[in-house]
Design a protein around this nucleic acid. Structure first.
Length: 591
RNA sequence: GGGGCCGUAGCUCAAUUGGUUAGAGUACCGGACUGUCGAUCCGGUGGUUGCGGGUUCGAGCCCCGUCGGCCUCGCCA
């Protein structure tokens, strides 16, 4: 070892002993006759002192040090002189009087200094990721990630789960996200797909009798990126045999309590609260509601239907909804201009045509540009429905159901953050359950699976599967943390005839099903146990537990929004020879 | 594919209504300094204002296109 200690561990107990440290020059303070170096490694920062009595060569070498040089220092650990302790440093009570300095590696002037200054733009950070990752904040996140994954592995090991690796080179499946494809050289013209999740393999493992499977699995989805979405991400994937939804949920409840306790030192009550999908949409307009604050949606469609005011009346008449939220004390806080901004926001981001709003006046009247069009007794009814008190601002969306959901959720999320309606350090865990089996694809006029096509309907909804698919609920459950979907799972279909029925509904004909999932259908016929599982988004959980607002900070080497790596410049061109071997020619850009 | 914000010194930012030689902090280079800890003080180097075109007597600023980063809708579970 080139060192005897780290830069974070020296303290009063080491005084008068010799130590050798290795690390980076974090800062240099040159006083002419004396030089102070703050020396940094993963474990902390220690002050090194060079003074004339250590000899002119040593002092001269120290003076020539630059930020981010890599050095080795040997010296005596000394208490700081009276009044010179630095309370900002964990090692601030001591310093190391250098007797030897070795420059292990000089640095060129770095584009930015990880130890100081304001954070550069994200493009610079990603290009010089090794410098960015030197920052203590990034170390903390990677350590947090490591701690979370270690806790997960320990927990599932204690509960009898077996870690099984599944292939990265698989086959493309039609449903779900766009696949990343890998051409096969040996089988020219054929392609592997990188897994969107190990879904099929883990079901096969249940058929194989593994009973409890777990994996930290890399997943790939070739879709557009977001602050919380990367093309390549990591799931804690698991599957259990002979279980019902409650069993999987309870298992994850235990994990969350353990993570909260061991990682955050936070106690959470179990079982975690559950609400149904329908209730979530009704009260919060979203299937992953942020339950850290209220501002619930109220429905006034019935009142609107009694009005002669065409704007709201027609919505009610045509099967739409008039729903809204109440911003407590919002009337004086939102100027006309700010309300216009909210209107612009819901038009731009939520597909809304507009936003109705009312201020509750001191005399409890509702004031709005459209108030004069609405019957006074109905205004009163609105105020009561939205529990409006003087000073409140009522925001209303009148539109088709999905648009009112999107709009009010969008407003709720935005206002919750802007008005600081919750403690940013608070953590709220909950489950959303009983998702619909199917969603309607209006453009293609067909049913699509809400989760994936292997999701089992609730036993009591089995007849709805064929009679009324829209009302058929699935044995599906999502873990929601602070309004973010942290994971989702289902009980799977373990009966090949039910599976066939679902495929039919989804418009996957028998031939296609056999071609794509033949092995699964076959496996289900050879004694498949009832089984189910869940996958947790590890990157997102790190983000949530770390209080971070973007997923890139939770990943050592993330991609940009255009799915490129600014450090390696991947993806890149390949040799023509490589393409020839694969039988691939690049077509011209489509017109 | 659509909407929005941004791009000026290595880095973070400023630059009046379109107006003289594009500034500051920091980093970097040189010098001074006996205890600093964002050290301080003095001096200095450093610019294709992302790129291309246009409008104008004159463009960092206005217009069009393009490249890149971020947020977002669509997409994605």
């Amino acid at each position: 070892m080139l060192r005897t200690h780290t830069c974070g561990e020296l303290g009063a107990a080491m005084v008068d002993q010799r130590a050798t440290l290795c690390g980076w020059v974090d800062r240099k303070r040159d006083h002419g006759d004396g030089v102070f170096i703050d020396m940094r490694d993963r474990y902390g920062v220690t002050q090194i002192v060079f003074e004339p009595d250590s000899g002119p060569e040593l002092l001269d070498l120290a003076k020539r040090l630059r930020n981010e040089d890599v050095i080795q220092v040997e010296g005596l650990v000394e208490p700081r002189p009276e009044g010179q302790a630095n309370p900002k440093l964990a090692t601030g009570g001591i310093e190391v009087r250098a007797s030897r300095l070795v420059v292990l590696n000089r640095t060129e002037t770095p584009p930015f200094l990880p130890g100081q200054g304001s954070l550069p733009g994200e493009d610079v950070r990603l290009k010089y990721r090794y410098l960015d990752l030197r920052r203590p904040a990034m170390h903390r996140t990677l350590l947090l990630r490591n701690r979370i994954i270690k806790t997960m592995r320990d927990y599932f090991d204690e509960h009898g789960f077996i870690d099984v690796e599944t292939p990265v080179l698989g086959r493309s499946t039609p449903e779900g996200a766009r696949d990343y494809l890998v051409p096969s050289r040996v089988n020219r013209g054929s392609f592997f797909a990188l897994p969107q999740s190990p879904q099929l393999y883990k079901q096969i493992l249940m058929v194989a009798g593994l009973d409890r499977y777990v994996q930290v699995a890399r997943c790939f989805r070739d879709e557009d990126l977001r602050a919380d979405r990367q093309p390549e991400f990591t799931q804690l994937d698991l599957e259990m045999s002979f279980v019902q939804a409650d069993d999987v949920i309870a298992m994850i409840d235990g994990l969350m309590a353990r993570l909260a306790r061991d990682v955050l030192g936070m106690r959470i009550d179990l079982p975690l609260p559950r609400i149904t999908y329908d209730e979530a949409m009704r009260r919060f307009g979203h299937d992953a509601p942020d339950l850290r604050f209220g501002m619930e949606i109220a429905d006034a469609t019935d009142i609107a239907g009694r009005s002669q005011f065409r704007v709201i009346r027609s919505v009610a008449d045509e099967g739409g909804f008039v729903r809204g939220i109440t911003v407590r004390g919002g009337a004086p806080r939102f100027s006309r201009k700010q309300i216009d901004e909210l209107t612009e926001f819901v038009k731009q981001d939520c597909g809304a045509k507009g936003l109705l709003w009312f201020r509750v006046e001191p005399d409890r009247a509702l004031w709005s540009p459209v108030s004069k069009n609405i019957e006074p007794e109905l205004l009163d009814a609105f105020r009561e429905r939205f529990a409006g008190e003087p000073g409140d601002l009522i925001l209303i969306s009148a539109d088709r159901w999905p648009i009112t959901c999107k709009t009010l959720h969008g407003l709720r999320k935005r206002l919750g953050a802007e008005l600081r309606l919750y403690d940013p350090a608070a953590m709220h865990f909950s489950w959303v359950v009983e998702f619909p089996m199917f969603d309607r694809d209006e453009e293609e006029n067909r049913w699509v699976a809400m989760h994936h096509p292997f999701t089992a309907p609730r036993p009591q909804d089995m007849d709805l599967l064929t009679n009324d698919p829209a009302r058929c609920r699935a044995q599906a459950y999502d873990l929601v943390v602070n309004g973010c979907e942290a994971g989702g799972g289902t009980i799977r279909i373990h009966d090949s005839s039910v599976q066939q029925t679902v495929f039919n509904l989804l418009g996957i004909d028998a031939d296609t099903a056999r071609e794509r999932f033949g092995f699964l259908l076959e496996a289900l016929r050879f004694g498949a146990p009832p089984h189910g599982g869940i996958a947790l988004g590890i990157d997102r959980i790190v983000m949530l537990f770390g209080g971070l607002d973007n997923i890139r900070d939770c990943i050592a080497f993330p991609k940009t929004q255009k799915a490129t790596d600014l450090m390696t410049e991947a993806p890149g061109a390949v040799e023509t020879k490589q393409l020839d071997e694969l039988g691939i020619r690049i077509a011209g850009k489509p017109a």
